[in-house]
Computed example of a mutant assay.
Amino acid sequence: MRYRRANVPGATYFFTVNLQNRKSQLLTEHIDILRTAFRTVQQRYPFKIIAMVVMPEHLHAIWELPQGDLDFSLRWSLIKAAFSKALPKQENISISRQQKRERGIWQRRFWEHLIRDDDDLEMHISYLHYNPVKHGYVDQASAWPHSSLHKFIAQGILDINWGETARTIELQKVE
């Protein structure tokens, strides 16, 4: 079965990208390597990061591709490769991955969603900014250091207490 991707040149996409080991903390432990991988790929294959959050074992990102460009798969492949190459080889690598010269750090695929309109964009930005709270890493979204929420706060788009109402509602449901 062939996976069909939404291929719209110059569009805005939401992505979820996971490490193979879902208990790993490589992304936050090596955040500087990840940032370098992103910058390196962006220089050669430009794209705009609208919003992003990096969790220990996965990340969410919203990208806007340049007009006429639809190759987000190449960009993710290069980011994953650059990050992986910069890390010491410590993981177990299956025969299948060895034959394909893969490290076994990342899941092979990623999930993407074509952003349809401003409401869809806002919903996905909120989802990714709230993700550290959802996963229990912090009680307040602004406490998570690896999030574009800080850029949104600095620009006056969101308040530092953004997301607290949702957390309060979540806690009330549990009680």
Rank of each mutant, 00 (worst) to 15 (best):
R109E: 12
R109N: 08
W63S: 01
V133Y: 00
E57K: 04
L26A: 12
V17P: 15
I93Y: 08
W63V: 00
M52V: 07
T36P: 06
G136N: 07
I125P: 07
W76V: 05
A143W: 10
M123A: 15
E122A: 13
P132Y: 00
L128Q: 07
F38Q: 01
E29C: 10
D118A: 13
T36Q: 12
I115S: 10
A82K: 13
S73A: 11
Q99E: 13
Y130G: 05
Q20H: 15
H135W: 04
E102L: 15
P46S: 01
Q90G: 12
L26N: 09
V138I: 03
I105G: 02
Q20Y: 14
R97N: 11
L26Y: 13
S126P: 10
Y130A: 04
L74A: 10
E91N: 11
S96G: 04
F72V: 02
R108W: 09
Y127N: 02
H60P: 14
T28V: 11
K134A: 08
D118L: 03
Y127S: 01
E57I: 12
R103G: 14
A37M: 01
T12Q: 09
Q67L: 10
L87N: 10
Y130R: 05
L70Y: 09
N18W: 14
Q43C: 00
Q107E: 14
M55R: 02
E122P: 08
K85E: 13
Y137P: 10
S24G: 11
I62F: 07
A51F: 02
E29W: 12
E122L: 09
R108S: 15
P145C: 00
R35E: 14
E122S: 12
Q67F: 03
D119G: 14
A11K: 06
D117E: 08
P145W: 06
Q20P: 08
A141I: 03
N92G: 13
K48G: 00
P46R: 00
F14W: 04
Y127L: 09
H113Q: 07
K23R: 13
L78W: 12
T28I: 07
I31T: 04
P132A: 00
I50D: 08
I79H: 02
W111L: 07
V53S: 08
R101A: 14
Y45D: 04
Q107P: 05
R44W: 02
H124A: 03
D118V: 10
L87C: 04
Q43A: 04
W76N: 02
K85W: 14
K89P: 09
H60E: 08
I115N: 05
Y127C: 06
I95K: 11
E112L: 06
V138D: 02
Q90Y: 09
L26C: 09
P9V: 00
E29M: 15
D32W: 04
L87Q: 09
A86R: 15
R75Y: 01
W76H: 01
P46C: 01
R116G: 13
L27Q: 11
I50L: 05
A81E: 15
K80N: 06
R22F: 08
A61G: 11
W144V: 00
I115V: 13
L19Y: 06
D69T: 00
P56S: 02
F38D: 00
L114C: 07
